[in-house]
């Protein structure tokens, strides 16, 4: 089973968001492998361990985003593909999907894995667009995933439970947090990662041009919203009575 895992390098989710020129600031801030993508990497590694084959990690972003790939390699992935190009600055999820599709098409694969949504952009539509470009069926929101050589079976989360979905391969799956317990890179893994194949691609390599990277939407303004004002603090011995007053006002008692 050859698996391609999509990973993204994102501003550290524990730091406050910084805005510059109407965009999330990505340079000069601490970036990390998207925590949500660790589940995808782990899922790929588990499938390789069960069924053989290779795990390829792929990312599109600024050059330094290669750090996200290196982290995945040190967890145990076999090879990396990094796509960087100045024309891709400000790419939206549609452009990202178009470019990743072109790169993934060059590699043979049975399964593509991505996160349900990225921690910084959280559009949650990149994987579906990617599946469409690749002509693949998709099963999103996997909270359990198993596979044979020819199909995957997924517990797909719904608003009130889950559906068991079975899908022939090749296919694309997105995984939720909780689908597995991602491993930490070992010291040996970190050393081994340095020798693993890592390909750097530009739009040229993919036979694409700046026209393929054109974004048809534009942020015209970012403004502060009238914040809710924080109200009163009450002492512990009054708390129950004051909350009960609110509940009574709302006719809940």
């Amino acid at each position: 089973m050859n698996v391609v895992v999509c990973v993204k390098h994102v501003p550290d989710p524990n730091a406050p968001v910084e805005i510059q020129d109407n965009r999330i600031k990505r340079t000069g801030v601490q970036n990390v492998l998207d925590p949500g993508d660790m589940y995808g990497i782990e899922a790929g590694l588990l499938l390789r361990e069960a069924l053989g084959g290779e795990v390829t990690v792929i990312s599109m972003g600024p050059v330094q985003a290669v750090e996200a790939i290196k982290r995945a390699l040190s967890m145990g992935a076999d090879r990396g593909v990094m796509i960087s190009d100045d024309a891709l600055t400000g790419a939206d999820s549609l452009v990202t999907a178009r470019v990743l599709a072109a790169a993934i098409r060059r590699a043979g694969f049975d399964l593509v894995i991505a996160g349900v949504e990225s921690t910084d952009g959280y559009t949650g539509t990149m994987p579906s667009s990617l599946a469409e470009f690749l002509g693949l069926p998709q099963v999103t929101f996997a909270k359990r995933l198993s596979a044979s050589a020819s199909s995957v079976t997924v517990d797909r989360q719904t608003a009130s439970g889950y559906h068991v979905v079975e899908c022939s391969l090749p296919a694309l799956v997105t995984v939720t947090a909780g689908v597995n317990e991602p491993r930490y890179p070992s010291f040996k893994g970190i050393m081994a990662a340095k020798k693993k194949p890592l390909e750097h691609l530009t739009l040229d390599h993919l036979g694409m041009s700046a026209a393929d990277a054109e974004v048809e939407q534009e942020i015209v303004q970012i403004s502060a919203v009238d914040e809710r004002k924080s109200g009163t603090r009450v002492a512990n011995d009054e708390a129950a009575a004051r909350i009960a007053d609110l509940l009574a006002e709302a006719k809940a008692i």
Binding site: L94, T123, G124, T125, T140, V215
Partner: peptide
Amino acid sequence: NYDSRDIAGRLSAKTGATLMSN
């Protein structure tokens, strides 16, 4: 929603329509 989000993402790729999420 779950299904809508999947369909919208695919339709965006299929038609080339720009998509805004959330």
